[in-house]
Design a protein around this nucleic acid. Structure first.
Lengths: 198, 198
DNA sequence: GTTGCCATGTTAGTGTCTCTAACATATGTG
DNA sequence: CACATATGTTAGAGACACTAACATGGCAAC
């Protein structure tokens, strides 16, 4: 268990963790060099584990999506399948995630060069989206909601994602200070679920 | 009209324009140094007109919002006041703007250090949002839509903004390739406008 | 066990970037 | 016409991403 001066042993994960912390603390202006200092290695060390900075970011994003998905599953399991409460809870958790780690949330959802369809960040993202959207589809089919369940699911996702984005970027405040975003989303969700037949 | 070797004459605006072009062409990875080369000046020249890089970005954002607002006004004026077509047209234009200049769109809506409530970027943003939201409020009151007009307006904005974000970041493709985003938004908007009374 | 390979660390260095300091020039106002 | 000031320059500091060449130590074959 002795930490040898030379070989770190867990450097790969240590750098991923340090980067995620820096993203929390410093926002977009995080640097790989800072992560190295935090992990106690030289600034050249990361290149034994990652091709470039983007590859570390992709790992951070992948873990972000894994966290988001596992949180969503945990929150969903607190409510009966097919209930409105379950959908609402998942949506609220989506927003809480964004508010809690706004810069990570932005990075997760922003297209970067070097982000292919097959890498882990994309795969975890797909998995996460699939769960969220499937929850809504299940609800719609279970409750006989009029209209295309998939489309309604995507509309709900879009609404919640838009609300999360506009919240963490402070854009709501520009037009309507002290707005109740939660009420806005819940009311919007109900309208989307109870609306017309198209 | 002779371009003197020393004094550029229009450097401030030239740098703003060059930066916006670079944002279009290179995405987030644009550099001030590149904008200087494009404007034909040294890399120290910008600091006679701007305190730092963020101040140039704020100008670019301000002009982006000015463009967005003027486009929205132009598009709205093609349709009768209070018509659904008018709302839809403004929403479509919002999305077209995002698709046309995705990186600018992201920068416009992302909180940055150095972005205060009083600077031009924020003011133009407010003005732009106010127009979009007011359009919907006007529609709701003119057509006797049930519910809080302001809240419905914000819900529509949220939906369209979410759709724009998820589109330009390629996130829809991860779960539902070849989705018809326009239909999704139009249908969602109709549901939001025709929904329950809460 | 010893030997040697190779994974994983290091130091040193390149090129780029933002921003500053000190200096240069041109413009327009008295 | 003089010169103050706005606006440009060159030089350089400090940070960063990334590379090349070298060092070390764990592990596998013998």
């Amino acid at each position: 268990m002795t930490k040898m001066a030379y070989h770190h042993g867990e450097l790969r994960q240590a750098l991923i963790d340090a980067t995620r912390e820096l993203v929390r603390e410093r926002g977009e202006a995080f640097s790989l060099a800072d992560a190295c200092r935090r992990a106690g290695v030289s600034t050249a060390a990361p290149y034994r584990h990652f091709a470039d900075k983007d590859e570390i970011i992709n790992e951070v994003v992948a873990q972000g999506f894994a966290d988001m998905a596992s949180r969503a599953r945990a929150v969903a399991s607190d409510h009966p399948t097919g209930s409105v409460a379950r959908i609402i809870a998942v949506g609220r958790d989506y927003m809480a995630f964004a508010v809690n780690e706004p810069t990570l949330f932005r990075i997760m959802f922003t297209q970067r060069p070097g982000l292919t369809d097959e890498n882990i960040a994309s795969l975890n993202g797909k998995e996460c989206f699939r769960f969220v959207v499937q929850e809504v589809v299940d609800f719609c089919t279970a409750n006989g909601i009029a209209g295309d369940a998939m489309q309604i699911a995507l509309q709900l996702w879009t609404l919640v994602h838009g609300a999360a984005s506009l919240t963490i970027d402070g854009d709501y405040d520009k037009i309507a200070p002290r707005i109740d975003v939660d009420a806005l989303v819940v009311s919007g969700a109900q309208r989307l679920l109870s609306g017309g037949t198209n």
